[in-house]
Design a protein around this nucleic acid. Structure first.
Length: 898
RNA sequence: GCGGACGUGGCGAAAUUGGUAGACGCAAGAGACUUAAAAUCUCUCGAGGAGACUUGUACGGGUUCGACCCCCGUCGUCCGCACCA
């Protein structure tokens, strides 16, 4: 399947070679020569430079900018090829297109490189950028490179610091103590994703939970708006909107305060507040449970060794996913007792339980075992009462019971005193309005409350290679923002990576600074921002990257929203949600006028590849596909190392990533076949939103097509160049014009929907249909045909230009087209050529196709029926009977029911 | 556990969203041109059958004149969330 060695025959072929003797001698299309030439031509004419003052309607197309890991891979090629088709298509359609590129350049890998190889993160990063920029340029993307920046450019992070200060002023930033995953070996905070089975992903050290003071963005201020506005994002995939909706996780419920029984309370405590979405099940309550971190639990645990040990254990176990799955519902009775809100004589125990989370709701729940599986498991374990209070609508109150499975659905209330017989919904309302008016300690005992799963965004990272948080800690004045005139807070260059931890912390001078307010000796914040901050507003910066403000209001408001954003589904939540928040925060701070940054979103599928490795566990070494050869043995496949012949383990298919080394560098393909073939190939066959398993099978076919188009057009070029385009309206050339204009209309629709694979298929069809008449034109034919063919070829070149721009220029120039195809206007299809006067409709008898009927397109029902009944196939099938019914779907199908 | 998507030839896929299933490409096979190869061109290509035809979109039902498409159930694959009260 995989030919790792590049195609020698192709490579060694001389640049020019004569074609067949049968045809006129033409030069084979040589991308190595043509592609750089056209790229130079585009550059010299600044074809892709975007003018902010261009009065035409704007169109902003953007692909998620890459992390400069070193080399681009096929996933990038796919992503940027798609964006480039959109950009070129929209440009041709008369839009003022913005299509920029930059680099998401801060982050851990640069620091890892520094630690492993002793190279400075900045040097490593900028070298990678240079290499990847060169690769992208070879692809011939229609990018406005004059707007390029990297997020690690001082000019960029300075403006990010500016934004941070503005957000601070607007109350959107705060500091708080929070629990973090702490790697004791690397001396750093780890994101949840970086903790694997309770261990640091790099150091393999047991991760600790630490309380650290961290900076947060108040994304939760916008919870409701972020949720509601999802409905306005019609051009986003439903899947992404749903994922964000679930992530924000809105729930409506009731916050109920439960009175602690006088002789069973902790000192100074009189009540426990509990959040519930099911107040209807209140009569099914049999216990309260609080989180190990709940203040009440801490208080009671202070004098209770057993409880203290249990709480410690809960805190430790918290993180690991595997632990959660198998963890039993366990708890310890605190000895505290509460009164039931609807019956003062009813006392319930209070447990500390391992399944209650401190950071959701109030950190305390009431357990209704019959209506919740966890509560039921817990109740069975500790022998607590299980009273069914909701049964299905068709249930029988006398016999309905709950065994080992809770009934969590809606239904009818039972065993619930005055609620009996009510629906779940009515009972909810009844309890809520009752407790809202009931008082406890001078306040309503309960209030309706909306809760969100979404947490504030912790942005502190104890890393060097990130945007410094622009604040100063003064013993006198406290936290003092760096004055804007003192920005940027630059990263120091002279840092060492020989020890774990944050180099900023141990830099001899950097952190020491005078307090901007009182002048006293103070220290800089040494945390840097999460790299997700960098990517949360780069799309706005592209609109005016030269500004000495984060944005130019007039300009950003003109360009935003991004009309078409293209990137991987893996960013469905974090990046896209953060960007939506950031845009709102920037609006609040006056840097933008809109809330939603991305009008259209397209999530392209990943390019995945098998992984190859040798060794086991920690010794496992990943191997690049280019280093091995694969044989098909019939019974299975065998991979061997090219150098030694050693057998290699073929592993699972995964997204191309540097760490697994299952990347395919596009350079080989581009060098062998050219950028156009590579672009055409990655857009062929598979729908763009679907994952593809990388295989070079088929790239030959794409290359064949590119060459075929060139050969057909260049052979006919002398005749075409002498002709003026004129679609045929009658005569033998009519077919040519119909094919061309119908394809034009269809491909337009495909490009509009980003259905590149379908557009490619139609291009094949068009070329297949035009091949023979094009050869005729080349050898000489009548003027009408040549004129129609000139029109058709112009259309073909326009249609190809977004996908294979170099080839299109070459063809355009050889037929004597005016200017550059990259700057030419999109052709218009001729409606009369698209609609047909006579059509062929299939004729079914009892749902089976028996004949074709050729008939006028606008024939009415009775004419169609008459024509159908006159068909031989229908008459023999009917054998003299009269049909029961004839269904005529105009222009589609006819079904005769016998 | 909850939520979602998907399942079509040897392979990647298409089907105007209820109207000819398999367009287009890859692979394969046959032929033409050639001393030969490459390139190019022509044809075949879901299964069964000489054939007209029959059958076929994971599986089992249903609705309909007509179902890859809608409904019910089953199986499988993938993704997201996950002790969220």
């Amino acid at each position: 399947m995989m030919k790792v060695t590049p195609h020698k025959t192709e490579r060694q072929r001389p640049a020019t070679i004569s074609g067949t003797t049968k045809h006129m001698a033409t030069e084979r299309y040589n991308p190595r020569d043509a592609e750089p030439r056209w790229q130079r031509e585009w550059n010299e004419n600044s074809v892709y430079k975007t003018d902010n003052n261009d009065p035409r309607e704007k169109y902003y197309v953007l692909e998620m900018f890459p992390y400069p890991s070193g080399r681009i891979h096929m996933g990038h090629v796919r992503n940027y090829a798609m964006g480039d088709v959109v950009a070129r298509y929209k440009r041709a359609r008369g839009y003022n297109v913005l299509h920029p590129m930059g680099w998401d350049a801060f982050g851990m890998p640069a620091e890892n490189a520094a630690m492993e190889r002793g190279v400075h993160p900045a040097e490593w990063t900028y070298q990678n950028i240079a290499a990847m920029r060169a690769q992208l340029k070879v692809m011939g993307l229609s990018l406005d490179w004059s707007r390029e920046f990297a997020t690690c450019d001082v000019a960029y992070y300075q403006q990010q610091q500016h934004l941070f200060l503005d957000f601070m002023e607007k109350g959107l930033v705060y500091r708080k103590q929070s629990k973090v995953n702490w790697d004791p070996v690397d001396h750093t905070v780890l994101a949840n994703e970086q903790v694997i089975d309770g261990r640091g992903w790099r150091s393999n050290a047991l991760v600790e939970q630490r309380e650290l003071t961290q900076w947060f963005f108040r994304i939760t201020d916008f919870s409701q708006d972020l949720l509601d506005s999802l409905d306005t994002l019609e051009h986003w995939p439903e899947k992404v909107r749903l994922m964000q909706k679930n992530w924000i996780g809105r729930s409506e419920g009731l916050s109920i305060r439960w009175e602690l029984v006088a002789d069973a309370r902790a000192p100074g405590e009189t009540e426990v507040e509990v959040y519930t979405t099911r107040p209807d099940t209140l009569f099914g309550a049999s216990f309260l449970a609080i989180a190990a971190d709940h203040p009440l639990a801490r208080k009671v645990a202070a004098g209770n060794a057993e409880l203290e040990a249990f709480c410690d254990e809960c805190r430790r176990a918290g993180t690991s996913l595997a632990a959660l799955e198998t963890a039993e519902k366990r708890g310890i009775d605190t000895g505290l007792r509460v009164r039931h809100p609807l019956d003062p004589s009813w006392e319930l125990p209070v447990y500390v339980a391992n399944f209650v989370l401190m950071d959701y709701g109030t950190g305390a729940i009431f357990g209704c075992p019959s209506g919740d599986q966890r509560d039921l498991d817990f109740a069975r374990r500790y022998d607590l009462p299980v009273t069914p209070v909701v049964m299905p609508v068709d249930g029988d109150a006398a016999t309905f019971s709950v065994g080992t499975e809770a009934y969590t659905g809606d239904g009818v209330m039972i065993h619930s005193r005055f609620l009996d017989g009510l629906t779940t919904e009515a009972a909810f309302e009844r309890v809520a309005s009752l407790l809202e008016t009931k008082e406890l300690g001078g306040r309503p005992q309960a209030e309706r409350k909306v809760n969100f799963r979404l947490r504030d965004w912790g942005i502190s990272r104890q890393r060097y290679w990130g945007c410094p948080i622009p604040v100063i800690h003064c013993e006198v004045c406290g936290v003092v923002p760096v004055p804007k005139k003192d920005l940027p807070v630059r990263l120091p260059d002279d840092v060492t990576f020989d020890k774990p931890g944050n180099p900023l912390d141990r830099h001899p001078t950097w952190r020491h600074v005078g307090c901007p307010q009182c002048g006293a000796a103070a220290r800089r914040e040494t945390d840097t921002m999460d790299t997700f901050v960098d990517s949360s507003w780069y799309f706005m910066r592209f609109t005016a990257p030269w500004e000495e403000q984060p944005t130019n209001r007039a300009v950003v408001d003109r360009w935003i929203p991004v009309d078409q954003y293209i990137g991987g589904i893996e960013h469905a939540i974090l990046h896209l949600l953060y960007s939506r928040f950031f845009t709102r925060a920037m609006k609040a701070a006056g840097h933008a006028g809109l809330s939603e940054p991305f009008k259209g979103l397209f999530t392209q599928g990943m390019v995945v590849h098998e992984t190859y490795s040798r060794g086991e566990g920690a010794q496992r070494e990943w191997i690049n596909p280019s280093a091995i050869t694969i044989e098909d043995l019939g019974t299975g496949r065998r991979a061997t190392l090219n150098e030694t012949g050693e057998e290699i383990v073929i592993g699972s298919i995964e997204k191309m990533s540097k760490s697994k080394k299952n990347v395919v560098d596009p350079d080989d393909i581009i060098a062998s076949y050219g950028a156009d073939t590579a672009r055409f190939f990655v857009l062929s066959d598979s729908p763009p939103d679907r994952d593809v398993i990388w295989s070079e099978a088929g790239v030959e076919g794409a290359h064949r097509f590119v060459q075929r188009v060139w050969r057909l057009i260049s052979e006919a070029a002398p005749a075409l160049a002498a002709a003026k385009a004129a679609p045929a309206t009658e005569g033998p050339a009519l077919v040519i014009s119909q094919v061309a204009h119908r394809t034009l209309k269809a491909v337009e629709a495909d490009y509009d929907k980003l259905a590149f694979n379908k557009a490619v298929a139609r291009l094949y069809e068009m070329v297949n249909a035009l091949a023979a008449p094009l050869s005729d034109v080349a050898t000489g034919t009548d003027a009408a045909t040549t004129a129609a063919m000139r029109d058709a070829v112009e259309i073909l070149i326009h249609l190809m230009a977004p996908i294979t721009p170099h080839l299109a220029e070459q063809c355009w120039s050889v037929i004597g087209g005016e200017g550059l195809i990259a700057q030419a206007d999109w052709p218009r299809f001729n409606e009369a050529l698209v609609t047909v006067s006579e059509i062929v409709v299939p004729v079914q008898i009892n749902g089976k196709k028996r004949a074709d009927l050729t008939i006028a397109r606008d024939a009415d029902q009775s004419a169609v029926e008459a024509a159908v009944l006159a068909l031989d196939a229908v008459r023999t099938a009917l054998e003299g009977r009269t049909p029961k019914k004839i269904i005529v779907v105009p222009q589609r199908i006819v079904n005769v029911v016998v």
